[in-house]
């Protein structure tokens, strides 16, 4: 016997076991170890991945939240800006109105005080003087009344009267109205009117006012030599588009957001009231549509009016 150690069953020596295992179970063990290792590694990787995902999710979530807050703040600022612009416009309007009414009031006050003074004199009242004073007062009252009547008429006209409107015809009419002036300025007017345009329910005189204003602006933007393209087309859903494009001077990016503001004008003093586009904007809004502008300095501007096919008149 070469091996002196007694060989008891179940009591194999380590090298023996190792040998045994190496011979009979090595592939088993390696597989097991590999599996355990694999599980361990994948668990670790999964954990890392989960951690990373969680972290990135949190980051993205935070970013989104920050963006939402920023958007909200921007919206708020925009809103406030709009509100303050509106207030400024209202302020200007009221200032103009106050001025218009204060003038006759001032005259009335002067005349009344003068009459009071004459009446308190000891000598007999100068009748011609008194009558002329009273006449002046009546005249100024009429003048004030005219202002308020005009305001009332203006307010009444705000309510659109809904009728069937053939837009292609309306556009054609307005183009003809500016034809002489465009000819003098050597401006070509191209009309691209969709033949299948449905007639829409809207307020025709108000729309004429808008189209005429936009054509006039386009003409002034070009001044001399250029092209105005006016087109109509149906669009989804249940709406139509009118586009007026000019090859004029264009509007700078800085001024673009303000062009619909009341009293804002780029025209030289006395040439524009700054009310044209703001009136257009107001009209189109009341007609349930939108008016937008795209422009590039030196290339021209495009005004796009979108109108619903059917306008349901809103109560004011």
């Amino acid at each position: 016997m070469t091996d002196s150690t007694p060989h008891l069953p179940g009591q194999e020596s380590w090298p023996g076991l190792w040998h045994h295992l190496a011979v009979y179970g090595s592939s088993w063990l390696v597989a097991m170890l590999a599996i355990i290792l694999g599980m361990f590694v994948s668990l670790l990787l999964g954990l890392v991945a989960a951690l990373a995902a969680g972290l990135s999710f949190l980051t993205i979530h935070r970013l989104l939240r920050q963006k939402a807050v920023a958007d909200q703040e921007k919206h708020l600022v925009d809103e406030q800006l709009l509100q303050s612009q509106k207030l400024a416009a209202l302020g200007k309007l009221s200032a103009g109105l106050a001025h218009e009414i204060n003038n006759p009031l001032a005259i009335i006050r002067q005349e009344a005080e003068w009459l009071l003074f004459l009446c308190r004199q000891s000598e007999p009242l100068d009748m011609t003087e008194a009558i002329s004073g009273l006449r002046q007062i009546l005249k100024q009252v009429d003048r004030s009344r005219e202002i308020t009547t005009n305001l009332l008429n203006f307010a009444r006209r705000q309510q659109p009267i809904v009728q069937a409107v053939n837009l292609n015809r309306l556009v054609g009419d307005m183009v003809r109205l500016v034809a002489k002036e465009t000819e003098q300025r050597r401006i070509t007017v191209v009309t691209q009117l969709a033949p299948d345009l449905p007639s829409i329910n809207s307020d025709a005189p108000l729309l004429r006012q808008v189209i005429l204003n936009l054509l006039n602006n386009a003409m002034q933007a070009i001044d001399q030599d250029g092209t105005i393209t006016i087109s109509t087309q149906p669009t989804e859903p249940e709406a139509i588009l009118i586009q007026i494009h000019d090859t004029g001077c264009g509007i700078s990016k800085e001024l673009l957001p303000r062009i619909f503001d009341p009293f804002f004008t780029t025209k030289p003093q006395g040439k524009g009231t700054g009310l044209g586009l703001s009136i257009c904007h107001g009209i189109i809004e009341r007609l349930g549509g939108t008016i937008t502008v795209a422009s590039e300095v030196g290339k021209g501007s495009t005004f796009t009016v979108k109108l619903p096919i059917t306008l349901t008149p809103k109560e004011i």
Binding site: V178, P205, N216
Partner: peptide, 23 residues
């Protein structure tokens, strides 16, 4: 009713509440 096209009177007329312009 207008004999010759006039943009200015057109705009003025529409703002004053004219219904339409006929040439």
């Amino acid at each position: 009713l207008t004999g010759h096209a006039s943009v200015e009177s057109g705009i003025q007329g529409m703002q004053l509440g004219a219904f339409d312009y006929v040439m």
